[in-house]
Design a binder for these strands. Structure first.
Length: 526
RNA sequence: GCGCCAGUAGCUCAAUCGGCAGAGCAACUGACUCUUAAUCAGUAGGUUCGGGGUUCGAUUCCCUGCUGGCGCACCA
């Protein structure tokens, strides 16, 4: 092994040496009796010798001649191991000398307190559970100060397993994410909602205004889309008599990536027969309050943006109509203003719009520019233009151009989108037809007509409220993460050169019928 | 998509005006039976993100591509 200064080669050499000693470096299992924390907490009560079997990853290693000190880390924390040649025997101690930072090992022994007072394990038996062939970045710590932290964001996202090993706060984020999802599920279950799963692969996509991902089914030789929302299948279930349903699933939107957007994200949608959008607001308040309480233990949450702002999630949230808010902030009555006046106002605020865009888009644009960033406290914005809400029921007080819809804004970000669901099949058909016209005018996000869905509606869908909640954003808020990437274990990244090479190796051969070019023609996209 | 910034050893980072590419940790060899950012002595380790250009000479200057971060635009 002399001269093996390449860490990879050195580790492979140690692996060979272990095998030469008759050690199986990748055994089938290990009987763990204690977690590190259990030993640390239980030590005071351990009157007599108790042998503990622990398993974990070597996070520090200090060989000093015939003695080795090491810390192993398991899910509960770290504990120090003390290995002595004279107690373990030469044979076993030779194995200890072949250990590296990052190896997974098992150790059995008796807890004791070292001269410096640290509760440790006096190791009697040592097992290699998985020899690590690659070096772990050498992060060190003393008195809470971390040295040479693993902080490169790209490296952390690309090799999240290292991030999880080396940055404990990352594990906490994902524990909180799981906790938030657990609460959402439990609260909906408790209210009689049935969790369902609907297709991700769809011949006709819909339920939101977004561009889809397109794929291809070889055996059927047909294009398929990855869903952009869960909405339409769930409403078919309302028709089918499942009066309270929800789905917590992944949706896919072919848009840009930034701090708040990943091409795939987790969307909770629930549909509630015989309720309207006002009742849905109360339920959304409950869900937000409950997740905050259980995940954060408080309703006052500091802004993830790193400002001093603290947001108060205690219901009731403010309820304001979109038209009122725009009037206050931009000084325009969007219900009465001419299209030209709306255009002019948009331009004044710095947002151009294509000439053919629907009136509702101009209004929404005005809102996005003048109001949304200012909505810091949780606020339900209500009553949206009909032309941008083709699946929402007309407003009971102004059915010609408004719908019963709300979006929840917190800290200028949208967290939920909901409406009283349109259940008049003929009206729905007209709305789809209008979308079709926008699509022909060049709006790639306009929603395609879904004949299957219309047929279902014709059988009678109960009046209902439907809600979508952006789970990732809620988790961001509750974990203090400013970037969606930080609440996704594997956020989407462009392939690096390295993974590009890997991918090429794994790519299935070209199949007949697969689109030769990833860019569909304009006709295909329709 | 546009703008700004960044990419140097496994990790964290230096490198003067364009003048031999360095440090700490990790690794390797040796010493060390209570250490804990172990210590001590020594050794090795580089496609300076890729490609091109200017120059006697480029980590450094210019062009271009890639990846990432931030901001803007779009969206949830």
């Amino acid at each position: 092994m002399e001269g093996l200064t390449d860490p990879l080669e050195a580790r492979r050499g140690k692996l060979r040496a272990l095998r030469a000693l008759g050690v199986q470096p990748y055994p089938h299992g290990f009987r763990r009796t204690h977690l590190a924390a259990e030993v640390l907490e239980g030590f005071a009560g351990l009157e007599e010798r108790v042998t503990a079997a622990l398993a974990g990853r070597i996070r520090s290693l200090r060989p000093m001649g015939k003695v080795v000190f090491a810390h192993i880390e398991d899910p509960s924390g770290r504990i120090q191991l003390y290995l002595r040649a004279d107690e373990m025997g030469e044979e076993s101690f030779r194995v200890a000398s072949l250990l590296d930072l990052g190896d997974l090992i098992g150790a059995t022994g008796v807890p004791f307190r070292t001269r410096t007072g640290e509760i440790s394990i006096r190791v009697e038996g040592l097992s290699v559970l998985a020899k690590a062939l690659r070096p772990l970045p050498a992060v060190k710590e003393r008195e809470g100060v971390v040295y040479d932290a693993f902080r490169d964001r790209e490296a952390r996202y690309r090799r999240r397993y290292l991030d999880l090993i080396l940055n404990p706060e990352v594990r906490e984020v994902f524990a909180r994410r799981a906790a938030a999802i657990r609460v959402l599920r439990r609260e909906l279950d408790a209210r009689g909602f049935l969790e369902v799963e609907t297709p991700v692969l769809q011949a006709v996509y819909g339920g939101a205004s977004a561009r889809p991902f397109r794929t291809h089914h070889h055996a059927l030789d047909m294009p398929l889309y990855l869903r952009i929302a869960e909405e339409l299948p769930l409403k078919k279930l309302l028709v089918g008599g499942l009066e309270r349903v929800y789905e917590l699933g992944r949706v896919f939107r072919n848009e840009g990536l930034d701090r708040h957007h990943n091409p795939e994200f987790t969307l909770l949608e629930f549909y509630w027969a015989y309720a309207d959008y006002r009742e849905a607001m109360s339920l959304v308040e409950d869900l937000v309050r409950q997740t905050a309480l259980e995940v954060r233990g408080a309703l006052q949450i500091p802004s993830p943006e790193g400002t001093d702002e603290v947001v108060d999630l205690a219901p009731p949230f403010e309820r304001r109509s979109l038209a009122d808010l725009v009037r206050e902030q931009a000084g325009i009555d969007v219900l009465a203003a001419s299209d030209g006046a709306l255009d002019e106002a948009c331009r004044r605020l710095g947002g151009g719009l294509p000439a053919g865009a629907p009136r509702g888009k101009r209004i929404e644009k005005l809102f996005d520019l003048s109001v949304a960033p200012r909505l810091r406290r949780p606020t339900f914005v209500t009553d949206y233009p009909m032309s941008i809400s083709p699946l929402a029921k007309g407003h009971r007080e102004r059915p010609d151009d408004l719908v019963e819809r709300f979006e929840l804004f917190i800290l200028g970000q949208e967290y939920a989108n909901a409406f009283s669901e349109l259940n008049d099949p003929e009206e729905q058909r007209r709305r789809f037809a209008e979308q079709q016209r926008w699509r022909e005018a060049g709006d790639e996000e306009a929603q395609p007509l879904d004949e299957d869905f219309l047929e279902a509606l014709e059988h009678g869908m109960p009046p209902a409220a439907g809600v979508g909640i952006g789970v990732d954003r809620l988790v961001m808020l509750l974990t203090g993460c400013a970037a969606i990437r930080d609440v996704l274990l594997f956020p989407h990244l462009r392939p690096s050169d390295e993974s590009d090479r890997d991918r090429t190796g794994a790519e299935p051969e070209e199949c007949p019928g697969a689109p030769a070019s990833p860019a569909p023609s304009r006709e295909e996209r329709r």
